[in-house]
Design a protein around this nucleic acid. Structure first.
Length: 550
RNA sequence: UGCCCCAUGGUGUAAUGGUAGCACACCGGUUUUUGGUACCGUCAGUCAAGGUUCGAGUCCUUGUGGGGCAACCA
């Protein structure tokens, strides 16, 4: 029995005490942006907890601010949650479905003398609110009669008053130590077209007046949110108590922070709008859609979220944990293939002119069931530029004058000569091969320390490969006062290799099945870019761990 | 000069008054037709001071440090 985090403990206690018979959670995004890895943590938590207890999860779109929200975001959110592998078995809900009910709640509050209409300007109300260290003061409209408030609120709904002319406030305590309890605004007038309710409403409830009540109406037992809502909890409970409805409970946990990236929707939106990235799904983005396009798997993200844990303390997770989760999954599942990213020619001087042959190679040494594939081979191959060095020491296992290496799943070869191009760069390496060193039936007795990947020239696929580095060069791009996070954008976050050489089996690849390019990393086909350029384009999702301390 | 939350190796997270453990990262080794994987090992931690207790990472007090709270945003 593994240990439980504090929310699991609360749930166990509630189940054991009989407070609840079933766990019912919800994931409540505002459809005003794309989901990111931080949301993935919240999703895994709420869906995971329900799964654990055979409970229910609702997907709820918190759409109380029509000016910032849109259907595009609703669709993207649905897609991302599904992709992570979760099903909202408690149904799909919208706060806007409850607008009428919420209006009635407000009326109920007015009728019990706990809400009033205020006609002051935003500035005046702000001034009366006080500060965290000094109490606020009462509005001159605070003691209107119930009848007056009822009439005015009906007028607000009926569109009698212009935008911003008045608001409905809860009557709590203007001297409360918690700013959120100082007569919070619960309804405002806003003539904005809502993507679902159209122009039915010109007044919209505020977050605090909608969230807890929706939780309650949906029968949510445990309403999980991030720490910044901690100070809202007394208000959340106040509405539920004063409305006398199902007692959903809000519990807060620490949000996810990742080093070398940013996690605020507002800032991610700026990256998109200012053209720093290709869009919300740019493979460098920490969005779910970006990670998906980058080649991350749902399994890896879920593993990551598990490892990150749940607690109340502020945290910054190493990006390497995310990379580890991906490698861990793909090492077990991704088929291997060979590709040369920076090709130079490798000529076997003693290989019979015009001859070709077929070699076999295992698809995944970690998984015998993955089978084998055939590789065309000849005397004309591509090899990686960085696998050859003119001057090498004893620690260099790859090709160099005097060195002998194994070509993966093929033959052992020994350096003979090399050719320089006009600019003095190595353009071709010539080697002799040992016919009796064939992989699987090696009788040569020759030992080679290094193994190189290669691709046969005649059958190679020409492809674009996109290599990514972190988007920000600073571990905390938004943590510097006086500096904008865009100041820390890494100018080398994307490297495009326009003409790479891939083994022919990769002709059948698709975006859903990541591949390990032997010795290089995990890669996945980029559907969008492939269509754009009319030939294969691949993304490097993550490199292999590089144990070489050269 | 307020209120609320938090504090365990570099990072994250366990230990529910009774042996401070796990993972990632780092470093080293073994195996290896991927300088990958796997396996083994090293390094490294309870913010401070008091108190309660046979016994405190855990409970209490005070301090220190970090975070949050004053949108007609969520």
């Amino acid at each position: 029995m593994s240990s439980q985090h504090f929310i699991q403990q609360i749930i166990s206690a509630d189940l054991n005490s009989g407070k609840h018979q079933q766990v019912h959670t919800r994931f409540p995004p505002e459809p005003n942006g794309y989901l990111h890895i931080g949301h993935a943590k919240a999703i895994c938590l709420s869906f995971g907890l329900a799964e654990e207890h055979q409970g229910l999860v609702n997907l709820r779109f918190d759409d109380t601010n029509p000016e910032k929200e849109s259907q595009e975001y609703v669709d993207a959110i649905r897609r991302d949650v599904s992709w992570l592998g979760y099903t909202w078995n408690g149904g799909e809900h919208y706060t806007s479905d409850q607008f009428e009910k919420l209006f009635q709640f407000a009326v109920q509050l007015i009728e019990s003398g706990k809400a009033y209409v205020d006609h002051q300007s935003a500035e005046d109300m702000g001034a009366q609110k006080g500060t965290p260290t000094s109490p606020g003061s009462n509005s001159p409209h605070r003691n209107r009669t119930i009848a007056e408030n009822l009439a005015l609120f009906q007028e607000m709904r009926a569109g009698v008053h212009p935008d911003g002319h008045c608001v409905l406030r809860a009557k709590i305590d203007m001297t409360h130590a918690n700013m959120h309890m100082r007569d919070p605004i619960i309804y405002r007038i806003k003539r904005a077209h809502h993507q679902r309710t159209g122009d039915d409403w010109c007044i919209y409830p505020m977050y605090d007046f909608a969230h807890g009540q929706c939780d309650s109406l949906e029968g949510i037992t445990h309403s999980l949110c991030t720490l910044e809502f901690e100070v809202h909890r007394p208000l959340y409970a106040w509405f539920i108590e004063n409305l006398d409805i199902f007692p959903s409970r809000q519990i807060e946990f620490a949000r996810l922070n990742l080093d070398h990236t940013i996690m605020s929707k507002r800032k991610l939106l700026r990256l998109v709008e200012e053209g720093h990235v290709d869009g919300w799904d740019d493979p460098r983005m920490p969005t779910i859609s970006g990670l998906r396009r980058r080649g991350f798997t749902p399994e890896s993200i879920r593993t990551f979220c598990e490892r990150v844990g749940i607690a109340k303390r502020e945290n910054v997770i190493d990006f390497s944990l995310l990379e580890w989760a991906l490698r861990d999954h793909l090492n077990r599942t991704a088929p291997r293939a060979m590709a040369v990213l920076d090709p130079i020619k490798l000529t076997l001087v003693n290989y019979p002119e015009g001859q070709t042959e077929s070699l076999t190679s295992e698809n995944n040494p970690e998984d015998p069931d993955a089978g084998v594939r055939t590789l065309p081979f000849s005397g004309q191959l591509w090899m990686e530029r960085e696998d050859f060095k003119l001057e090498a020491n004893k620690k260099w296992f790859r090709l160099a004058p005097g060195k002998t290496v194994r070509l993966k799943s093929a033959f052992i070869v020994r350096y003979v000569d090399h050719v320089l191009d006009d600019s003095g760069q190595v353009s071709e390496v010539k080697v002799e091969y040992f016919p009796d060193s064939r992989s699987g039936s090696d009788t040569s007795g020759i030992k080679a320390k290094g193994t190189l990947h290669w691709v046969n020239v005649d059958t190679a696929i020409d492809a674009e490969v996109r290599l990514y580095d972190r988007l920000f060069s600073d571990p905390a791009p938004d943590g510097h006062e006086g500096k904008d996070f865009t100041d820390f954008i890494n100018p080398n976050s994307l490297t495009i290799r326009p003409h790479c050489m891939l083994e022919p089996s990769l002709a059948n690849a698709d975006a859903e099945n990541p591949i390990q390019f032997t010795r290089l990393g995990y890669f996945s086909l980029d559907q969008k870019r492939t269509e754009e350029i009319g030939r294969p384009a691949w993304n490097r999702s993550v490199t292999l761990k590089d144990g070489w301390k050269g």
